[in-house]
């Protein structure tokens, strides 16, 4: 919970790096916490890349994994994941290939590339830097100060 708020504050910095394609990923389900649209957009690419770093996956499974990782607090509009995946593919961070799934239908599997891993590493460093900065001020800020 705290991390989410942390990141919320640093969104102005990250906005610059955002790709607009992820803007509308954000569509909160009524029962979930209202995570800002920009925040969802900013985290989409690193989150997808990190999930693919765990192993090859496909759209539906990625969405499911995001749900698990965030305890259901981070909800994406499912259809919006695919333009993000296609953008990552265009940038060369992931590769896609069609394969027949256990259901017998064709499914498009995504695999992270070397460039994708490198990008994930830099992203990770940046997020950690922002996170550490915010943690610092969080610690020094007394609740009374924070509330004004």
């Amino acid at each position: 919970m705290e991390r989410i708020y942390l990141a919320h504050l640093c969104i102005a910095v990250l906005c610059i790096k955002l790709n607009r394609a992820t803007d509308t990923l954000y569509a909160p389900a009524p029962d979930t916490m209202d995570i800002s649209k920009d925040l969802v957009a900013a985290s989409a690419a690193p989150l997808v890349l990190a999930i693919l770093a765990e192993g090859d996956s496909y759209g539906y499974a990625i969405i499911k994994r995001v749900g698990e990782l965030s305890d259901g607090r981070l909800r994406w509009t499912d259809g919006m994941l695919y333009p993000v995946l296609h953008r990552l593919e265009r940038l060369g961070y992931v590769e896609a290939s069609w394969a027949t799934a256990e259901t017998g239908r064709r499914r498009r599997y995504y695999r992270i590339t070397k460039a994708g891993r490198a990008h994930l590493t830099t992203q990770r460093e940046q997020w950690q830097a922002v996170d550490a900065t915010l943690r610092g001020i969080w610690r020094e800020l007394t609740p009374a100060q924070a509330l004004g």
Partner: peptide
């Protein structure tokens, strides 16, 4: 899945 208009707009942008 989201509104088809929004999804297709994102596809068009990409």
């Amino acid at each position: 899945m989201g509104s088809l208009d929004a999804v297709s707009r994102e596809f068009a942008r990409e």
